[in-house]
Write a protein that binds this DNA or RNA. Sequence first.
RNA 1: GCGGGCGUGGCGGAAUUGGCAGACGCGCCGGACUUAGGAUCCGGUGGGCAACCGUGCAGGUUCAAGUCCUGUCGCCCGCACCA
Length: 799
Amino acid sequence: MVYDFNAIEPKWQKIWEEKEAFKAIDGSDKKKFYALVEFPYPSGAGMHVGHIKAYSGLEVISRKRRMEGYNVLFPIGWDAFGLNTENYAIKTNTHPRKVTMDNVAHFTSQLKRVGFSFDWSREINTTDEEYYKWTQWIFLKMFENGLAFRDRTLVNYCPSCKVVLSNEDSQGGKCDVCHSDIVQRSKEVWYLRITEYADKLLSGLDEVDYLPNIKQQQVNWIGKSTGAFVNFELSGIEDKLRIYTTRPDTLFGVTFMVIAPEHPIIEKYSDRIRNIDDVNAYKAECAKKTEFERTQLVKDKTGVKLEGLTAVNPVSGKEIPIYIADYVMMGYGTGAIMAVPAHDQRDWEFAKTFGIDIVEVIKGGDIEKEAYSGDGEMVNSQFLNGLTNKKDSIAKMVEFLKEKGIGEAGVQFKMKDWAFNRQRYWGEPIPIVHCKHCGMVPVPYEELPLKLPNVENFEPGTDGESPLAKIESFVNCKCPKCGEPAKRETDTMPQWAGSSWYFLRYCDPHGTDALADKEKLKYWMPVDWYNGGMEHVTRHMIYSRFWHKFLYDIGAVDVDEPYAKRTAQGLILGPDGEKMSKSKGNVVDPNDVVDVYGADVLRTYVLFMGDYTMAAPWSENSVKGCRRFLERVWGLLFLSRNEKDNALETNFHKTIKKVSQDIEQMKFNTAIASMMTLLNDVCDHGSITTEQLGIFARLLCPFAPHISEEIWERIDGKGLCSLAKWPEYDEAKTKDDTVTVAVQVNGKLKNAIAVPADADQSVVEAVAKADPKVAAAIDGKQIVKEIYVKNKIFNIVVR
RNA sequence: GCGGGCGUGGCGGAAUUGGCAGACGCGCCGGACUUAGGAUCCGGUGGGCAACCGUGCAGGUUCAAGUCCUGUCGCCCGCACCA
């Protein structure tokens, strides 16, 4: 009988929904398990199979946990604010809210067809007023605590999207949304002081179980470095030039200073700088380039010497020149460096270009050829001379600097504060009022949510001005503090705001008194297992950990790290091996696969196609292989049923063990492979017991739940297969009675022999030597050594 | 330049972490059943007639190496003049 997925899959999806089979129960006595997948951004393109793979991992684990008796929270929602929706809305002249609703409907139908075991009763949407009320609430708390502030600096600006982007959103100098080149411009915008949490974000990694590469990437992004700040005196001026260095021990080798073109000291002492015209010309040239260009194009060192402004090396007392050069960035450290050409390649190149002295202070390299950055004996460094350990020499120098009051130890982070703003319509309004008398005044908590006005024209302004600025009724308001006429902030929050706390809302999606009820949070948090894409590791993952740590500090949540465990799936590449993209036309729509093969085949294939954490190309032929597998599983129902036969007992116990263990390690491909092997064994054997069929259905259920339910029902399994008890194995019964032992002579395989399991060496030896091939190989030779690894290998070394 | 990862049949990928390389699937070859097969079932399938040779390449350690060590080449991802 043919397996009709078109009838069976919707049947079970309906039953699960009616029975609320996957509903998470707040405060249940059962052990809780909170599985989180990254909620999708409902774009107009719909889901592609990559989404299905991303959710299928924890789908399998959640289903297994339920069968193991856990109270599982496996929620889903919509990260629906954002530029893509808004751009699409503008293009099609539809309101973003309408676009969002349509996209959510489309995504929902796609997800439901696949049969994911989400608790749909907890569905959330970041654009709901009752949701973004709390996003605004958190923002106000940050404002109250000095973590949200405005500043005028150079910002990353996307001329195409017409918005300011954070560092995280403009990685590689490209806009994350439209991939246009980023330009830098000076603008006053909102920031979140994430750098204040840099150390906590770093040390928190010690207590969580993230895949090592995920941790490493966050460590690199945070980019902590330890070193020292040193204040250099300027000849004839009271002011000091403050620098940051990781190698204060090389201070005796400093022969010049370099400051960033934007360094304020230039303007301050412009009357002293004799060649100020040249300097300004250089500055102007640098300003034309983006920071990206300045850093990306590693080319010849350029710069201009400041005539009339010099510094003094605080340890040698020598007067040294100051240059401006674009290889020093205003955005890192103090925007000024002490240059040690002998031991820093960039400084070395600069010194060579400008004919500056190169003084060796660490022995070990050839500083004529290149800078030497390795370890070695300190020379030309007075009280450091003779030290060979970097740690010692740094410590000694820092101590000296501190004693003399010219410097102190310090740390720097590569991570910068989070530019938290969009000059766009489709985002959470920032709940701040600008008052002439009172300055920036927060919208009172009881007035939240500050609703996004419903307007016809939401096109962005021409010069980085938010569309909200055009809406008089929104902009003009009364100051909450003094009551005088005031103006509302018109920037909205960036894409990442709503997703920075959504996992908390799932714990209490309909609560009205707090972002989530304290008791419910206590029960569900932290997230036990979070899976998502590598592309979010240095964006969403960092942002949400930051918000959560802040909420912990103000007592809104009880644990400081939100995610106990984090894994990441690999991409699904197109059939051509390229990354799936609309422009390449290699995107596979899950609906098309479900239409032809059914949901179970799709689910099984995305997990069978390769290592879950690695990229793998889509292959329609391999999809067919999974269909064949499931159809043969279906055939088990019609195989002869011999209830007394336990010939395959070992095979079943082995498979239960393998599947159980592999799922925990996300080795879904080998879990499925072992079920295929078992199926082959059963088919070869020609009969199965009802109990065994029940075991098979339950093992398969997390992967292919529809067919499993149907089989379960037809063999009169009790209740839903999805909630039936996960099969257990008996370790003793996973062992075969006889095992094959490979026999080698001098490490070369001669034959394989069958011996009783756990046989002694004497037994194996006797059987091995009786084997003709082995006997021939050792005939007339002297046996030097015999190595026996139980149940595996017997190696005879002869001479 | 820094950080992370990968390299195994025609293809996707396995290999209990040092113990029979190529599980499982795809594809391919042969056969059966068929009016038909791009359906299904059965058998075969790393290379070589063979001894043997085979995990990017070259060494090394070991009774034994895809796995460990040294060197080297290639590819992918992230960050990038970070002082």
